[in-house]
Write a protein that binds this DNA or RNA. Structure first.
Length: 821
RNA sequence: GCCGGGGUGGCGAAACGGCAGACGCGGGGGACUUAAAAUCCCAGGCCGGCAACGGCGUGCGGGUUCGAAUCCCGCCCCCGGCACCA
């Protein structure tokens, strides 16, 4: 071509071998450059507003799968974005390094858990680097390091002092496969299976350590000031299970037992009472004639597993104790039964039965021929709703709501009962009968009993030369050097606690440890905490909705009450990722053969494309199936963006073109959209806005636009917009476009409202709400002008068909609706 | 049963109460090429029609409104959580 191109000739970038974007080379280059320049070090001095971006630290299982990439990309994007928006960003990473898989590897293959764990961590660190993440590795936390877990022990001791940690003999859940007890939260589903390994748990009576999370039950119900998904809040609320009711006692001769009810308004309908088979009073009140039947029933109930008890749920069974209790208001004797539909673990383990107005009591009464009185009018029995009271002495004629209060008042006045609140939430069982966890820092002394290990003796370190037995028993039980110690109080011989802590203890406060990961004097540096906490945005999987996220909230509240921090919530905003499914829309698994390996993807497409594609699939909290065709669309986008960038760099001078203003407007529209979309974690629409902008640049070139200055202006801004999502390519583009320094420390572009304004706008003309024509008019044209133009339209006139226009609705710059009479 | 979230083209999905289907995938047509790949362009909800155009369309039935995917009421279905919780 000679000199300047023919004026109207389309100028568009051409694909050549040289213009192909070489992701492998470029990604390697910039990852090395960033590391050498320490680009992602958290700023030490306070200069700009802080932003603490946190993602749930991974378990070092050995390899990241594509789900980890899906989980890790948005926090990285957001951290980069907030940095460009002018914040000092803290974006740390670490490893949740204690846990059973490491111990299983030790038992099976003779590798020490520490070796297994640290090897995995090394491999996963490298993978996280190939993703192009901006984690600050200087702050890495590895929870199996004594330097970390000593502070678990320190917190345990503080909790012990505060009465927030205690030991109790209690019926607990035991996983026979993991060979340890579990917290109630770790037993899932109707079949009561171990959350980790899916084995049905069994009940055991053991001495175990608990954290008193129930002390914060009410406070945990308040999510005030938290921007968390409804789903998570609902799950926690449901788990805590608060219910308001009335507690009162029944007298049985000299004995008495308390019951809890939420339906005190139905008290006059109580025709019998039921105790849980395990209730301590059963033995004392059972009459001699009933003794054999009761003993047989209790024996049968205790032999049955929970699963069996549940499978016969519809067939309610029970046995009469022979005893009678006195109705607190009528004084009538009512029979006392035992039945396994009453649980010892909830409320008081005893109930007042109101068969007329409760399904379960109705079934039971029907089966055993007990009376079913009606105390609320209307409908067939059982009638469980509210209504007007009958057969209720002085309360007849009252509504349920009024009677509820009146009867509660009467019981309180008579000293018989009181209003009270019950929770389903139980205290957090933290004892684990495993080796690979934090030793619980107490010793047992024959003279002094349970003695806490003094702070100065921390950490209590796991013995490194443990012997892992094929039986799966904790090596700590058989390690004399660990087991035998002296009592810190009396100096006599003592024995160490061999239980270790639930690994959820580790994860309950790791966001604090990132502030000063090597601090030898305190769990975290208070000055750093004041600067950075609480976490501004926290991301992770929905599977932790109850477990980790509730424990973490509890820890922060306990730390606040210990005077360690000034706030009560650790994370202000929470966002959950969805799950990436296999190409066949099923869960990815080796057995299904639909696993997508991220290392293969990175080798084939590069990290930027994988990041972009994962974010483009759809709303992040929704997840979705992998699509190997879909990622090719992102490859095309990447290549087209690259060619457009080279083209912009090579195009000369400021040759004006009539398309210039609309291209510049397209840029500012894209800036506005991408900014708003990233703010709301809508990565898919942010990317589509960038694709639209790229299409606009293509159309501009297609139409002969050749203003090189404008093209570079657009592409420099574009480069900054895409920098959080495709950090490597953006860095390379930034350099090619003549930008100084790293693109990742540039200021985020700002949309100019004046440039967003259009000179001409398209107005939709509706007749009776149906679109009949479109008009192009000047922006902000006066209404009567628009109205005249609308009425002048032949299409509109045809639709009106000579009828009268009764009403005209005009929305400026948008539409006119003609309503016919 | 209770709680939470959904239901929009062939597919993934967009849409402050104001042009439904942006953006992308797939399929279709075309340009370039000896050919293919790559790239670029065009069309693209469904039905009728060569077309202009018309009708119908956001799970179903009502309602509010000049105007509803969006708000309200009543259902249906799907996903997730909890579930003998007194």
């Amino acid at each position: 071509m000679l000199g300047e191109e023919g004026a109207a000739m389309a100028v568009r970038p051409v694909e050549t071998a040289e213009s192909r974007y070489d992701f492998a080379e470029i990604e390697r280059k910039w990852q090395a450059a960033w590391a050498a320049a320490d680009l992602y070090r958290t700023p030490a001095a306070e200069q700009r507003p802080k932003y603490y971006m946190l993602t749930m630290y991974p378990y070092p299982s050995g390899d990241f799968h594509v789900g980890h990439w899906y989980a890790m990309t948005p926090p990285d994007v957001y951290a980069r974005y907030m940095r460009m928006r002018g914040h000092d960003v803290l974006f740390p990473i670490g490893f949740d390094a204690f846990g059973l898989p490491a111990e299983n590897a030790a038992i099976k293959r003779g590798i020490h858990p520490r070796t297994w764990t640290m090897d995995n961590i090394a491999r996963m660190r490298a993978q996280l680097r190939t993703m192009g993440t901006m984690f600050d590795w200087e702050r890495e936390v590895v929870t199996c390091d004594p330097e970390y877990y000593r502070w678990n022990q320190w917190f345990f001791l503080r909790f012990l002092e505060k009465g927030l940690a205690y030991k109790k003999h209690a019926p607990v859940d035991w996983c026979p496969s993991c060979q340890t007890t579990l917290a109630r939260e770790q037993v899932v589903g109707e079949e009561r299976r171990c959350e980790r390994c899916d084995t049905p748990v069994i009940r055991k009576d053991l001495d175990q350590w608990f954290f008193r999370i129930t002390a914060y039950a009410d406070e945990l119900l308040s999510f005030h000031g938290l921007d968390w998904p409804e789903r998570v809040k609902a799950m926690q609320t449901n788990w805590i299970g608060r219910s308001e009711g009335t507690a009162f006692a029944f007298e049985v001769g000299q004995e008495r037992f308390e019951v809890f009810t939420t339906r005190i308004d139905t008290l006059y309908g109580c025709s019998f009472a039921v105790l849980a088979p395990e209730h301590p009073l059963v033995e004392r009140i059972t009459t001699p004639e009933q003794r054999d039947a009761v003993a047989a029933y209790i024996g049968q109930a205790s032999r049955e597993s929970d699963t069996e008890r549940l499978s016969t749920a519809r067939q309610r069974t029970g046995v009469f104790t022979g005893a009678h209790a006195k109705h607190p208001l009528t004084g009538q004797p009512i029979p006392v039964w035992i039945a396994d539909y009453v649980l010892m673990s909830y409320g008081t383990g005893a109930i007042m039965a109101v068969p007329g107005h409760d399904e379960r009591d109705f079934d039971f009464a029907t089966r055993y021929g007990l009376p079913i009185p009606r105390v609320i009018e209307g409908g067939d029995l059982p009638h469980t709703g509210a209504g007007t009271l009958v057969n209720s002495g002085p309360y007849d004629g009252m509504t349920s709501a009024d009677a509820w209060n009146a009867i509660a008042d009467a019981l309180e006045k008579g000293g018989i009962g009181r209003r009270t609140v019950q929770y389903r939430l139980r205290d957090w069982l933290i004892s684990r009968q495993r080796y690979w966890g934090t030793p619980i820092p107490v010793v047992y002394c024959d003279a002094c009993g349970i003695v806490p290990v003094p702070d100065s003796d921390l950490p209590v370190v796991l013995p490194p030369d443990a012997e892992f037995r094929p039986t799966g028993e904790s090596p700590l039980l058989h390690d004399p050097s660990f087991l035998n110690t002296t009592c810190p109080k009396c100096g006599g011989p003592a024995r160490r606690e061999t239980d270790t802590m639930d690994t959820f203890v580790d994860s309950s406060w790791y966001m604090y440890r990132y502030l000063s990961p090597h601090d030898g004097a305190a769990p975290f540096d208070p000055a750093a905490a004041a600067r950075w906490l609480p976490v501004d945005t926290y991301t992770g999987g929905i599977e932790h909705a109850i477990l980790h996220l509730m424990y973490m909230r509890f820890f922060t509240k306990a730390m606040r009450d210990l005077g360690l921090v000034a706030f009560g919530e650790p994370a202000l905003r929470l966002r959950n990722q969805g799950i990436i499914l296999g190409e066949n829309s099923e869960k990815m698994s080796k057995s299904r053969g639909n696993v997508v390996n991220p290392d293969d993807l990175v080798a084939r497409y590069g990290a930027d494309v994988v990041r972009l594609y994962l974010m483009f699939i759809g709303p992040w909290d929704q997840g979705g199936p992998w699509n190997s065709r879909g990622i090719e669309g992102i490859v095309r986008f990447q290549q087209r963006l690259w060619r457009t960038c080279l083209d912009a760099a090579a195009t000369g001078g400021g040759r004006d073109h009539p398309g210039d203003p609309s291209l510049r407007r397209a840029l500012h529209q894209a800036i506005a959209r991408v900014t708003a979309d990233l703010d709301r974690f809508a990565f898919n629409t942010a990317i589509s806005a960038m694709m639209t902008l790229l299409n606009e640049v293509g159309a501009y070139r297609e139409a002969g636009g050749g203003n090189g200055d404008l093209l570079r202006e657009v592409m420099r801004a574009f480069t900054r917009l895409i920098a959080p999502l495709a950090p490597h390519q953006a860095e390379e583009m930034w350099q090619r476009l003549g930008g100084a320094g790293s693109v990742h420390v540039q200021a985020w572009p700002e949309a100019d409202a004046a440039l967003l304004r259009q000179e001409r706008v398209t107005i939709v003309v509706q007749v009776n709400g149906k679109v009949r024509d479109r008009l192009e008019v000047d922006a902000d044209a006066p209404e009567d002008e628009v109205r005249a133009a609308a009425l002048a339209s032949a299409k509109v006139q045809a639709a009106i068909g000579g009828r009268a226009v009764a009403k005209l609705v005009a929305v400026p710059n948008r539409l006119v609706n003609l309503v016919l009479g």
